[in-house]
């Protein structure tokens, strides 16, 4: 009697624990979903077609270096990342290599992502693995001959890739630090808004001053505090609201690639996170 009572109790406790684990998983997945939005993953990893499944890849990124096709990052075991371990996932972000050890081209912005916290990356993986696997083959990148091998990506890494780490700046506010983390690392704003040198490395000294030769032939604006070319005249609230719904201070609405960024990324953030981004951007010295 006692034994069976104890067993029942043990089973009940076990169920409770399972329930707790399930809730913890749900929290992790919800956190990962938020971070997938904040990381701008959907914008590139979703094909530009009305019926495209988010994150199943196929988007053609047309750059001055050729066309890159973003991979399928749903958990399909053959065409997606369904076989990836946590270590594989972290290595992609921190070392810029795939599970076979081949180097990624920096079209995948590991130069920025390498500063993202490990627990946040694993939450993102938990979310991706909670999705329905989608079987979708992605074309090979269409690149000039000298770049056609992964060795070219490795050579690029040796010259230009230094894994970033985010170190909070204690002389600034927590909002500034959160904004710096979102802008420089997770949100990787500089990938479009910072100009690039001949081999595609970002010119750090020109951070966020705009890129007249952006991907897909777009000219990308300066978002430093320059009053003429940048966003020096925008208030914090102007920036926050722009990132929410895409309206510029003059009442115009943005189009082009920033419209997708707002749709997939910044409109999903909390107002506090958008304000943090604004706080960081407003602190950048004017530069043209």
């Amino acid at each position: 009697m006692i034994a069976s009572g104890a067993r029942r109790l043990a089973i009940a406790a076990g169920l409770l624990l399972q329930g707790a684990a399930g809730a913890a998983d749900d929290d992790l997945i919800a956190q990962g979903k938020y971070l997938i939005h904040a990381g701008g993953c959907i914008t590139c990893h979703t094909e530009d077609a009305d019926d495209a499944v988010p994150l199943a890849g196929g988007y053609a990124l047309q750059s001055p270096f050729g066309t890159f096709y973003a991979p399928n990052i749903t958990p399909d075991k053959e065409t997606g990342i369904g076989n990836w371990s946590d270590e594989d996932f972290l290595r992609a972000f921190y070392e810029g290599t795939n599970p076979e050890g081949d180097a990624y081209f920096p079209a995948f912005p590991y130069t920025a992502y390498s500063g993202v916290r490990q627990d946040e990356l694993l939450a993102m993986k938990a979310y991706l693995f909670s999705l329905e696997p989608v079987r979708k083959e992605i074309p090979e990148h269409d690149l000039p001959a000298f770049m056609s091998s992964r060795l070219a990506a490795r050579a690029w890494q040796l010259s230009y890739f230094e894994p970033a780490r985010f170190e909070p700046d204690t002389t600034n506010s927590s909002a500034w630090n959160r904004g710096a983390y979102l802008v420089r690392h997770l949100g990787h704003c500089g990938e479009c808004h910072t100009p690039r040198g001949t081999l595609g490395a970002l010119l750090r000294e020109k951070e966020l001053t705009g890129n007249p030769e952006g991907a897909d032939g777009e000219s990308i604006p300066n978002i430093t505090g320059d009053r003429k070319d940048g966003i020096g005249k925008w208030s914090l609230s102007d920036i926050e609201y722009f990132l929410d719904i895409g309206m510029l201070p003059d009442g115009d609405f943005t189009g082009g690639s920033m419209s997708d960024v707002i749709e997939d990324n910044t409109s999903h953030l909390t107002p506090e996170d958008r304000m943090a981004i604004a706080t960081y951007l407003k602190s950048l010295l004017p530069a043209d």
Partner: peptide, 9 residues
Amino acid sequence: GGSCRGCHD
């Protein structure tokens, strides 16, 4: 705003 952006896009 969404409809403005949708068109401008």
